[in-house]
C-alpha cells in the first residue's frame, strides 16, 4: 500500500485531471478570443493550467477553480504575453500549414477583432460576457473586480463595439 502522502497526491492529480479535461477547451476559447490565435491561445491556456496545478492544493479548494484559471488567462492574454507571443503566432501559422489542425477561424471575425481592440479591462469583461455567457457577478469574481466596475466596462465596451461594427447597442444587458 502506498504511504498516505502519495495517495493524497494521486487523488489530487485525478481531481486536477478531471478539471483540466472539463475546462481545457473553454479556456483555450477564452484565450483565443482575447489574443486572436489558436496556437498562442493553447500556450496561454496550458501555462494557466500549469500555474493552477502548482497551486492546486489551494486552487482546487475554490468553488470555481475554472474562474481562477480564466483570470490568469485573461491577464496573460491582455498583457505583455500578447506581445511576447506575437512571434509564436507566426510560428503557429507556419505550423498549421505543415500540420493541418483544427483552426479557430471564428475568432478572426469582426466581432472578436473588435473586442480585442477595446481597452484591456473592457476586452476581458466583454469576452467573458459574450463567450462564456457569464453574468456580471461571475465576471467580477473571475477578474477580481467590483460588479459595478464590470457593468461600466461592459457598457462602455458595447458602445465602442457598436461604433466599430456599425451596429446599435442594446439596452439592459447587465442586470443578470
Amino acid at each position: 500500500m502506498k504511504p498516505a502522502p502519495e495517495r493524497h497526491l494521486v487523488e489530487a492529480r485525478l481531481t486536477f485531471d478531471a478539471f483540466f479535461a472539463a475546462d481545457y477547451r473553454a479556456v483555450v476559447g477564452l484565450a483565443a478570443v482575447l489574443c486572436g490565435d489558436r496556437a498562442v491561445a493553447e500556450e496561454l491556456a496550458q501555462e494557466a493550467f500549469v500555474a493552477a496545478f502548482r497551486r492546486w492544493e489551494t486552487v482546487g479548494t475554490y468553488d470555481d477553480p475554472g474562474g481562477w484559471v480564466r483570470r490568469v488567462v485573461a491577464n496573460m492574454a491582455t498583457s505583455v504575453w500578447r506581445s511576447r507571443l506575437r512571434e509564436a503566432s507566426a510560428l503557429a501559422r507556419l505550423r498549421s500549414r505543415q500540420q493541418p489542425a483544427a483552426e479557430l477561424s471564428a475568432v478572426d471575425s469582426d466581432f472578436w477583432a473588435g473586442v480585442r481592440r477595446l481597452p484591456r479591462r473592457q476586452t476581458q469583461c466583454v469576452a467573458l460576457h459574450y463567450l462564456e455567457d457569464r453574468p456580471v457577478d461571475e465576471i467580477a469574481a473571475v477578474l477580481g473586480i467590483a460588479s459595478s466596475t464590470v457593468r461600466v466596462h461592459l457598457h462602455q465596451g458595447r458602445i465602442a463595439l457598436a461604433r466599430m461594427l456599425g451596429e446599435r447597442e442594446e439596452d439592459d444587458h447587465d442586470g443578470r
Binding site: E42, F49, A102, E169, E170
Partner: peptide, 29 residues
Amino acid sequence: TVDERGHAARAAVLEELETISVPSATSVL
C-alpha cells in the same frame, strides 16, 4: 444588435472549439 453579433460570434467559436483535441494534463505539464 451588438448582442446578436456577440451571440453569433460565440456560437461560431464554441462550434470550432469542439474540434480541438484535449491533450492529457501530463503532456501539458
